[in-house]
Structure formats: C-alpha cells, structure tokens
Design a protein around this nucleic acid. Structure first.
Lengths: 248, 248
DNA sequence: CGCCAGGTTGAGAGCAATCAAGCGCGGTGG
DNA sequence: CCACCGCGCTTGATTGCTCTCAACCTGGCG
C-alpha cells in the first residue's frame, strides 16, 4: 500500500516565512472608487482592513497549511500558487477534495475545527487572517456574510458535481473534464501549467496515478493535447476533449 | 440504459396539498422558555414567525419538490418523511447527493437557482418558507446567519467524507457504512426502516442496484443484519459492520 | 556521477458493471 | 376470489475497466 508519505513530503513548516502586511491590498487599488462601491463589487474587500492584523505567509510545495482537526484559529486567502484540500484515510491513502487557486479561501468554516488538511501543491503565498476577527467582521457586515455563505454554497455545488463525475464517468471522461476545468481557471485556457502532481490529480478524480498517466498519454498520441516539461499542457483539440467528456 | 423514468415516477405534483400553518411550532412548545433562550438553543427557531407566512406541504413518494435550475423561490424544512437531493446526468443516470430527514433544510442556498433536484423518497411533509422572507430574517439575525452557514458547512463536510467513501471503499465497506449511518439517524439505531429504494442507495453510494442487493444478501447470510419486509433492517452484529467499514 | 522523486509503460488480476432471467408482493380488474 | 400485471428486488453468468504489481525512464540536484 502506497502511503502519502511516499508521494509528498509532509513537512510541517514550523519556521514559517511571515511578512507583516505593510501594504494592504486597498492601497494599491485605484483611488477613485468609493468604499461602498468596492463592497458591492466584491464584498470580500470588507476583509481588507484586517490585512493589517493579518500577514502574508509563504509555503513551499508540499508544506501543510492547516491540518484536519486543528482548531480553526486562522483562515487564509490564496494570493498566488495552488493549494489542495485533502482528507487523509486511515490506510494512508487520501482524497483531494478541492484545488484552490488565487482568490480562493481556506477555513471560512462555521465549525470549531478544520475538517480537512490544506497543503500547498506548489510554492504559494497566502494572506492569513485571525478567524475571530473575521467572524466579527462577517457578523457586522450582512453583505459579507451572504458572500461567504455563497462561497460555501458554491463549494458544495462543486462537490456534488464532482460526485457525479466520479460515480458516472470513465477515466477518460474525468481527465478530459479536468483538463477543460483547469483551462477555465487559467488566463490562457488553451495553454497552462498543471500546478500539481499526477498523484494529486489521481486523488482528486478518484483514480490511481498510473491511470492518469495512461490517459494523458492516450490524449497525447491522439493529438488532443500536448504536454511539455511534464506539467505544461496545451489543448490542441478542445472539441475532442469536450466530446470525451460526454461519451468516453 | 436504464433511465430514471423507469426507476421512479417523476410526477410533478401540480395540485399540491397545502395546509395553512395555523399552529406555528412555537405555540406547542413549553411556555416557560424565553425567546432568547430558544434562539441560543436552536437559532432556526428564528424562522418560526415565518410559519404563518409559510405552509405545510405534502409530497407522495417519488414526487418532485424542487427541480434543478428552478428559481429558488422557496426553501423547505423536512417535517416528516425522507427526501433525496439528486443531480440528473445527461444519459438518464443520476447521482443521489444527500438524503434528508426530519429537521433538514432544502434550498438554504445563496445562489439564485436550486442546483439540485429534490424528490420525496417516501411520503413526506415539509414546511415551505418564502425564500425572500427567509433571507431578510437571516440578514437581521446574525446568530441565524451563522447557523445557516454552519448547516452548509456541515453539508460540505459530509460531501467530502462521502467522496472518500466512494473513491476508496469497496462495495461492502460503503454499504456497511451506509447502514451504520442510517442507524445513527434513527431513534433506534439497531432496527430501522430504510425510507428509500435500492436504486436510491446505489445512486447515493456510487454503485449499481444489483451490487447493493448482492452485498445486503451477503450481510444477511453472514448473520450481520436481518431484513424484513424489504426495508426494515436490524443490525445483528454491529461489530462486524464496523469492521467491514475499515477492512472490506 | 549517482541518487531520488515523479512519471511512464507493461502484464495480469479482481471487483463491480452489465446483461439477462426470475421472484415476490401489492394492486387492479374481471 | 382469483388471475394478471408491474415494480422493486434478487440471483446468475459474463465482460471489462481500472487497480495492482513491477520495471524502467527522466530530469533535477547535491
């Protein structure tokens, strides 16, 4: 049985790189926009004042950000990089529940503890907010509360959709879907980096690493995709991928 | 390909049995408890005043309560019976995302539309609340907002845990887990009714109906469970089930 | 140069899906 | 009252997709 230890270095970064947030996000935005207007456009900017109470935190690839069962003392916003939310299984296997990218939040939970482990799949920078303060800002800002609720709802929706994927789709369909999904998230939806390993992808889609590798090879030889430097993907035939999503 | 139509009668109940809520829940509760105390104990009682604006609605087995994509005009609270949340797949198959029982909510979403279909798996009674009013009560009641957020968070947590189940557990493990889970939800955790069909269970656990049937038979012949009248289950050997959960 | 983590490729096995048939019970109608 | 019917469930035979086990490749780094 392959344990997670053989797949990723589970180093708990005790000595964390912490940079005081001397330049809150709001300072670099345009000066013409009112506070209210920004709030309406993105309720999460209500958290900006917290920046001074928070900190920029850096994590190297594989490092743990929060551990399942930990008291939810902080919550985080991904600034750059990529994060996986995982559930560890007793026998050492794991389930990647979600991949997070810039702008996504970790730990906006209503529970006392984190119910998943969060790890960086690539070198990442996050903003860290004391959860107690976040809670109070949320409590006094209904618009923000609704937005946070919406984030959680969206997460639930994504989880449901992935259940469909995992239960009803073949390996080819799952990976075609995954590639298109990763494209949507990227600036260039045709050429992008996969900021995670094959093992991460496998554990995300309910497959094993060999199956992921095999299917990617199939897509390569079929001329559907191109892969350079292991993780740089170019979608050559989007139609073929979309067809693979629905027919396998 | 077996479509859902052959599994369940997808009758859209246009002529709904609606009973005006003449006796809100708060009226039948003890008189000694203060409003505040009740709020702290169960923030959802803040919705009680809405009862007069809502209605008791009855659904027969198989009837649709809300449809995926419908505008989220109402939300519901299950009073009695059992409800399944399902995602329908293009080819007619489906995924049961969650089973709801008395006390559970439907449609406390922050999205404009429902992102799943809800159907009664057994004759059920629900309280129906106009969502607009619910929203305003939530907005003015931080404790309630937090509780609703917690409900959604719990749903997400459950979804993640079921991903683990589906991706890493054998058919035996999944069904053992399911039986124990259903027991936990029941008044008597050793003998209870399964208020859904084999097809529902299969679509919930990512299996097919035949596999569910086979595994239940295995458990029966092994003396682990007893099944009477098709859906009345008695757990005879809880230890064996719990062992099956972790080892297959 | 050698090591190591991550990735690829191959051979074989196993578990659950699929296809197919039959059972059991409740309801309905003659 | 009984025969028929349909739905849900059970059981059997077979297929096949993915997992497992194993070997090898590749690129980065000390």
């Amino acid at each position: 049985m392959i344990g997670i230890q053989t797949r990723t270095s589970r180093t708990r970064a005790s000595q964390r790189t912490v940079t005081p947030a001397t330049a809150p996000v709001r300072a670099v935005r345009g000066r013409a926009e009112s506070h209210d207007a920004r709030l309406r456009r993105d309720p999460l900017t209500a958290l900006d004042p917290l920046a001074s109470a928070g900190a920029r935190v850096s994590f190297k690839r594989g490092e743990e950000i929060v551990a399942e069962g930990d008291a939810a003392e902080y919550c985080y916003k991904v600034v750059s990089g990529s994060v996986r939310l995982v559930k560890l299984v007793a026998d050492g296997r794991r389930q990647v529940c979600e991949f997070l990218v810039a702008g996504d939040f970790i730990g906006l939970t209503a529970e006392a503890d984190h119910y998943f482990t969060a790890e960086a799949t690539a070198d990442s920078v996050l903003m860290r907010y004391p959860r107690r303060q976040v809670e109070s800002v949320i409590a006094s800002t209904p618009a923000l509360a609704r937005h946070v609720h919406k984030l959680t709802t969206t997460g639930l929706q994504r989880a449901y959709e992935r259940m469909v994927l995992i239960c009803h789709m073949s390996a080819q369909e799952r990976i075609a879907w995954f590639l298109l999904e990763m494209g949507k998230r990227s600036a260039d939806s045709d050429t992008f980096m996969l900021p995670m390993t094959r093992a991460d992808i496998a554990d995300y889609l309910g497959l094993v690493i060999e199956t992921v590798s095999r299917v990617l090879t199939q897509f390569k030889t079929a001329g559907t995709i191109q892969v350079r430097n292991i993780n740089r993907v170019t979608l050559l035939d989007r139609d073929a991928l979309e067809a693979a999503t629905g027919e396998g």
